[in-house]
Design a protein around this nucleic acid. Sequence first.
DNA 1: CCCTGATTCGC
DNA 2: GCGAATCAGG
Length: 195
Amino acid sequence: MSWTDDRVELLKKMWGEGQSASQIAKELGGVTRNAVIGKVHRLGLSNRAGTGTTAKAEPKAKPAPKTEAKPKMEAAAKPRPKAEPKPQEEPVPETRLAVMPARAKIIPAGQPLPPQPSANEISPEALAKVSEIEKKAKRLSLMELTERTCKWPVGDPATEDFWFCGLPVQAGKPYCEAHVGVAFQPMSSRRDRRR
DNA sequence: CCCTGATTCGC
DNA sequence: GCGAATCAGG
């Protein structure tokens, strides 16, 4: 596969939306995430606003330079003082389904359980996402949890109707993507009231 | 181990 | 220009 105009366009679009290189590669098909990343760099639209993981590139000594390092390292100049305000954009237009059907409030019996999304102010999208993924949750028991399973508790620990999400976690986080969304608030909720 | 992006360099 | 291999980090 080659980088046709429309494929590049899709790449730009998805990258702009914050999609990961692997997701983009999967979407495009016929290319690996490496190819996507390589293309992204070639296009010059590498660093995204506070996304990704590393975001910093340091020159490291090569472990085994066969022939010898070439003095062509331009030391990527970074002409980005910080002129990207990165305005908050309205992502999901839909997602208007019922949220939290009958979530009985749980009582953490001495367990350091994460905060439950009850009467709190959480993004409607996030809540919708959660109720959505809880449908296909693995419903794992405490014993079944691993380093890579979402540890978000659902239900009342005092009843049989209690389980952990169990979906694959993202990177290092204790919860899956959806639950991370409700567990860690961006800190900027509708706090300012226009009056 | 899973994932992420970043970089290098032969092609 | 392309992208696999490799690296670095969560």
